[in-house]
């Protein structure tokens, strides 16, 4: 990133999401001053109500595309951004709201709203990269503040971010945790999930929920065989793969194998 004379302008955009990922930026508390020193936080509604219009060196995008308006808005964001980085499972895989992709949206709106005719929504929830070019996708539900800071530091320095795409198991074993699957017989998505969260759930003796989406070489078919032997049925497996990254292609394909 070439700062020129002024600091690079940062914008944070929200699409269909819960705000948790953009708040991860505020969780970088000890480094907020360094962040403000390195970047001109020009558009960030969670922080300031004083938007600066114009172009941005870096746009952080949270959320998925689930309405026709958002499908238009993301194109405008892309046009105004030199670099575009997506934050979290919604923006990189469609999020939990991509469960709609497996059903008919009309049935949902009819069940929830008194006047479903007023609901303007798309039949699917899709990641940002389905709509515009993305420079880097940061995984997680939510993203890890340390990884987010690493991505920002890397962009500022013009180097590739150190964000490994290997399995969660590598991280879990490095931290010295006992495997909850092998030693506890628990359903754990760690072997098919990308590292990055710090193996939080196994640290508390719980199986991984797959918040960071599929690891680069995921083999869920084989893992499901082991989970079946541990007692999970097809419905269990379907639900296991259909959470925050339900529409990530590898998880989607595996859940569909277990669909009725």
């Amino acid at each position: 990133m070439d700062p020129g004379r002024r600091k690079p302008r940062l914008a944070v955009w929200k699409f269909a999401s819960c705000d948790g990922c953009q708040l991860s930026l505020l969780e970088c508390e000890p480094d907020l001053l360094a962040l403000a020193a390195a970047l001109d936080v020009a558009f960030f509604p969670e922080v300031s109500d004083r938007p600066i219009r114009g172009r941005y060196e870096l746009s952080l995008v949270e959320g998925s595309i689930s309405t026709p308006e958002d499908a238009e808005r993301i194109r405008a964001v892309r046009r105004r951004s030199r670099h575009l980085v997506t934050l979290g499972a919604c923006a990189t895989a469609g999020g939990i709201q991509a469960l709609r992709n497996f059903a008919a949206i009309r049935e949902f709106t009819a069940a929830v709203y008194a006047q479903p005719a007023y609901i303007g929504t798309l039949g699917t929830s899709t990641p940002i990269a389905t709509h515009v070019a993305v420079d880097f996708e940061l995984r997680g539900c939510p993203v890890n503040p340390r990884q987010l800071q690493e991505v920002l530091s890397a962009l500022l320095a013009g180097r590739p971010p150190v964000v490994p795409r290997h399995s969660l198991c590598s991280e879990c074993k490095s931290l010295g945790h006992t495997c909850v699957l092998v030693a506890g017989g628990q359903a754990c998505l760690g072997p098919v999930t990308q590292a990055g969260c710090g193996a939080i759930c196994p640290a508390y003796r719980r199986g991984c929920y797959g918040c960071f989406g599929p690891q680069q070489s995921a083999n869920p078919v084989s893992l499901s065989g082991t989970l079946t032997a541990l007692g999970l049925n097809r419905q269990d497996l379907l639900r296991l793969y259909r959470t925050f990254n339900a529409a990530a292609p590898v998880f989607r394909a595996e859940s569909e194998r277990h669909a009725q």
Partner: peptide, 28 residues
């Protein structure tokens, strides 16, 4: 069958391979 998860290499008492990572902070 293999999950390419790397559990075997992590628990192996002889596996020694490492990678080196360079990082910089926000200030550079």
């Amino acid at each position: 069958r293999c999950l390419a998860c790397g559990n075997c290499t992590a628990v192996c008492p002889t596996c020694f391979c490492t990678t080196v990572e360079d990082t910089s902070d926000l200030s550079g």
